[in-house]
Each structure stands twice: as C-alpha cells, then as structure tokens.
Amino acid sequence: MNKQGRKLRSLIEARRGVLMPGAANALSARIIEDLGYEAAYVTGAGVTNTFYGMPDHGFVGLNDMAAHTAAIRNAVDIPLVVDVDTGFGNAVNVSHTVRVMERAGANAIQLEDQKMPKKCGHFAGKEIVDTTEMVSKIKAATDARQSEDFLIVARTDSRAVEGFDAAVERCLAFEEAGADVIFLEAPVSEEELRKLPELIKAPQLVNLVVGGKTPILSNQAFADMGFSLVLYANVALQSAIAGMTRALTALKNGESVGESSGLLATFNERQQVVKKSEFDALEKKYQT
C-alpha cells in the first residue's frame, strides 16, 4: 500500500493536472488502468447509482465503500482516492472510517463538509456543517491514519451555500487543520478556477461534472493553473449508461447486436479486461 501512497503523493506534489477518472466498480477500474491513467477515484455517486440504482443522496455507507474499494484494489495497482462523503458521522466515526478504508486499500479519502444526508455537489439544496466541525473531522482523520502516505482530501460544498469568498476561507482552515489536498466543489466560472491556486497554497483537486456547474476547460489549462488532480468522477458511468441504452434498444428493435455492429465490446475484448488469460495460466500451473 505504501507504494501506491507514495506514487499518489508524488502525483499530487507535481501539480501537473493529473487526469483521474472515477470507477464505480472493479471492471471500470480495470479499464482505467489498462488505458494508462495514473490514478482512479472510487466514486460514491457511481457506487450508489450502479449498486443501488439510486441518486447520490447519501444512501451508501462505510461498508459499501470499503467492500467496493477492496474489490477494486484487488483488481488494479494504481493509486485510489476514495469518496467517503461526510465520513459517515462525527469525528469519532471519521477515525473509524479512516482505519477501515486504509485497510481496504485506499490511498486517500475525500471527506466533505455537508450535513447528512449529503447530496451530489452539483445538486441544489445542500446544507453544510460548521467549519469547526469539519476541522475536527480533518484532525481526527490525520490522527487515525497509519501511514503518512495515506492522504486526506478535504472538500467544501460551501460555494453554493455561502459564496466563493467564504468557501475559500473554509479551505484555508482545512489546510491549517492538516488536509493534504483541498477540494472546493462547484466553482461556477473560469475566474474562480484561476483564483483558487493563487489563494490556497495546498495542492488542489478540481471536479468536472459533465452537465454540472463548473466550466470544463482543457486539461492543459488546469495543469497551467497548478491543479494537482483533475477529476472526471462519472464519465465512465455516463458512457456506460449511454452504451447499454443503445445496445439494448437495438436488441429490442430487432437490430443486429453482433460484434460487427459497433455497439459492443467483442467477446475477446471483454475477456482481456478481466484478464482471463492470467487465470488460464494459473489453472494450467496448478493442474493435477
């Protein structure tokens, strides 16, 4: 685990806008790694959508996220940043959450300052806790980690509630409390994005939601600004929904869904993603 943790820390310290897609399950994480991405994000929204078929309204719990993280860690070797929402309770709960997620294979957690039940950062109607409560959670998280290479990403959703200046003040308090990475959710303009690396010294993550509130600029632009991580939490999930809908609609309409239709991965491509050849080799090795 220290290997991936050190790798993640080096990626963050470089501040070169590392693209980080979200994975809702081990299969999508395998594709992310196979395509050469340097890190993946275990998305709470994605787990909620795929595991429960429900919206990102705080329905997943610690056991859900730990189980998915463990499965993903077993499948890939790249660093994992894991969404733990509000930490699933108060500062004491956050201590437990950190210990569980570190054992499950996470290299960082993303902890936010919403009240429960939390909502997607680009939904309306969010509520936030006091800054002092969030600071206590960050301190509890840093105290609970076993490795200094297990990183704490502190997120504020206060931009939508109190405005940009107040959100920056929160970020500065999170930085002082010991957060390794700062994540101001849902800035609404390029001007706000450009201000963040100037106002906050700690490494930062920017979250880009297709159809959300934050302007989507080129990755080079975010690298030039000095962001460490550029998160696309649900591009893989949204593309999977679109692909499944097209293929199943074609099937229902009596159209071809063969390998030449362009609607599916081929049978062999599917087996490559799940690394069937490696299991075949093991079977042969241990055959009696």
Rank of each mutant, 00 (worst) to 15 (best):
V94N: 05
I78G: 07
A223W: 10
A179P: 08
G121R: 00
E133Y: 02
F59E: 11
S256C: 06
V230K: 06
K137W: 08
M244G: 14
A177T: 12
A26C: 08
C171Y: 08
K139N: 12
A233D: 13
A281K: 08
H57E: 15
V84G: 04
D56Q: 00
A250M: 02
K201P: 01
M134Q: 14
K276W: 05
E283I: 01
Y232H: 13
V135H: 07
L35S: 12
I32K: 13
M225G: 06
I72D: 07
N90I: 03
I31Y: 06
E269K: 00
L62K: 00
A240D: 00
Q287Y: 09
I200E: 01
D149A: 00
V60A: 03
T48C: 13
C120R: 10
F123Y: 00
G243F: 15
P21Q: 04
K7L: 03
I138F: 13
A160K: 10
Q238K: 15
Y232L: 11
M101E: 14
E259V: 08
A91W: 09
P79C: 00
A236G: 08
N49D: 11
A24E: 15
I31E: 09
L196Q: 03
V209K: 00
D64R: 05
A242S: 14
G258K: 11
A29Y: 15
N207G: 12
F227K: 00
A70P: 11
A247F: 03
S189A: 08
V92L: 15
V181C: 02
G46Q: 15
E112L: 10
G53E: 01
D165G: 02
S189E: 12
D157H: 01
K137V: 06
S158C: 15
N253W: 03
I152V: 05
K284M: 04
T97I: 12
S147R: 05
A108I: 06
G226K: 02
L237Q: 01
K252Q: 14
E191Y: 06
H96K: 11
K118S: 09
R159G: 05
A23F: 14
S147Y: 03
N74H: 08
K284E: 03
Y41W: 14
T142P: 03
H68S: 05
G61T: 13
E133V: 01
A75W: 09
R194V: 04
P79L: 00
S10C: 00
V81C: 01
A236S: 09
G243I: 13
V168P: 01
A177E: 11
F267Y: 06
N93R: 04
M101T: 13
I216H: 10
Q110M: 11
P215W: 02
D83P: 04
T131L: 14
A29N: 15
E283Y: 02
V42C: 11
I152T: 04
E191T: 09
G243Y: 14
E13A: 12
R99A: 06
V209M: 02
L199G: 10
A14H: 05
S28P: 12
V60Q: 05
D165A: 07
A75F: 12
T214M: 04
L184Q: 06
R170H: 12
E102A: 03
P203N: 09
V98H: 05
A202F: 13
G17L: 03
Q146T: 07
A177G: 11
A29D: 15
V257R: 04
G211V: 08
P55C: 13
A166R: 10
R170P: 10
I182R: 04
C171P: 12
A104K: 14
D224G: 11
